[in-house]
């Protein structure tokens, strides 16, 4: 623990222990808000901010808090952080806030956040905890955005629709129509479509992962096997 390996933290949070695709925490917002890329991006950013702030705060208050009261303290820190983010979003990205609705306050209940506070931030130095919050948040956000993109393309045939919700007037012309004249496919928009798409994503990640491991292992196989063939 003397030297923090930030590369390792990033790889763990984004790929190996990805909250949405491997640990499977926080699925409720993941499935509910991933119907368009912009919604997914909005919630992903909000969750990432929350994770970074709570991880940092938890790590900073580590010397002050006795272990027996740490869980209520985490809950307090997380709830306060999310409320601050909610107020700020309400003031500056009002339309997006209205679209995401209840899922902003519900970030509080995303178990991934208290999970990181307990499993990582409470045992590590502030900078490492901040990096972990960033990595895990990025991993969750990426899973959200990819899922959102898949569902939006299949559901509407577009990408970045309603970008003005997140980016203001600047995003009004961002919508990309990939399949012109596409009649929307309802299933992708509904909860079953979210589950099916998530299942495919998890399978895809596992496949990529297995292939990576195989490739890393290959040279050994070749060394061992080539003389024989």
């Amino acid at each position: 623990m003397s030297k923090t390996n930030y590369r390792e933290i990033l790889a763990e949070g984004v790929w190996r222990q990805n909250t949405g695709l491997v640990v499977l925490l926080g699925l409720c917002p993941l499935l509910a808000v991933s119907n368009t890329v912009i919604n997914a991006l909005g919630l992903g950013l909000a969750t990432m901010m929350t994770l970074m702030i709570t991880n940092l705060t938890v790590s900073l208050t580590r010397p002050l808090l006795r272990p027996e009261v740490r869980i209520p303290a985490y809950v307090l820190i997380i709830a306060a952080t999310v409320t601050v983010i909610e107020l700020i979003m309400k003031a500056w990205t009002h339309d997006l806030y209205r679209t995401l609705g209840i899922f902003i306050p519900l970030i509080v209940t995303n178990c991934a956040i208290i999970g990181r506070a307990e499993a990582f931030a409470s045992r590590n130095r502030p900078l490492a905890a901040l990096a972990d919050g960033f990595a895990v948040g990025l991993g969750f956000g990426l899973a959200l955005v990819v899922l959102g993109a898949v569902r939006e393309v299949i559901g509407h045939g577009t990408l970045f629709r309603q970008a003005e919700l997140l980016l203001g007037p600047w995003g009004e012309n961002m919508q990309v129509t990939l399949l012109p004249g596409y009649d929307s496919f309802l299933l992708a928009m509904l909860p079953p479509g979210a589950f099916i798409a998530l299942g495919c994503l998890v399978a895809g990640r596992n496949w990529l992962n297995a292939r990576n491991i195989e490739e890393q292992a290959k040279p050994e196989f070749e060394q061992a096997g080539s003389p024989a063939t």
Binding site: L64, E68, V69, P72, A73, I77, A80, V84
Partner: peptide
Amino acid sequence: LRSGLSLGLLALLATALLSLVY
């Protein structure tokens, strides 16, 4: 007592922060 006080202090800080942001 120490545990309770530290929680109370944290609650106070959180409330102050929220009032400010509000």
